[in-house]
Design a protein around this nucleic acid. Sequence first.
DNA 1: CATTTGATGTTCT
DNA 2: GAACATCAAATGC
Length: 189
Amino acid sequence: MVARELLGTVLEYTTPAGRVAGRIVETEAYLGPHDPASHSAAGLTPRTRWLFGRPGTAYVYFIYGRYWCFNAVTQPVGVGSAVLVRALEPIDGLARMRRRRPLARRDRDLTNGPGKLCAALGLDGSLNGHLLSRAPLVIRRGDEIPDARVVVTPRIGLTKAAEWPHRYFVRDNPYVSPTPVAFPRVAYG
DNA sequence: CATTTGATGTTCT
DNA sequence: GAACATCAAATGC
């Protein structure tokens, strides 16, 4: 599963304002049209245009009237499958992240949620459709995370398919978003 | 620490 | 008109 493979890779955004980067420590897989929780379940709409694009495309959407969420498309054109990046461990540009997230009290609060990390990095809808193999926004190889350090749970915040176990995170990493207490946690593999 | 609640506006029905 | 892949503040331990 690509969502698991993305753990440990580095998301890096370079603009005239500077460079910000973080290690991906939490992801969620959204499958194709047969996944009721995926935006692709509703078919092709103006919003989901880039979700149905080629693998490695950025799919960025606006939610709850305030926040952007960043995804990487993972399946061939027309399928509509993507991985939501839910948390980063900051690597570079910490000062810029703090300026963009003035309400974050602790550094771990800068990027431990999908809306938070987009705000910290400055990601928004202008990046929709961008290919992640090229500047200014790239995902590059980082640390390999052993299977023994990967935990699987249901996805957060869903009403449909709420029990499907497609959330992955790095065990004991302080930058992972809080796991709801009632969630089952399963070792990967 | 855990749980609850209000804010916010786009998207699709 | 309802739903929504969220967040932060407030509350009760």
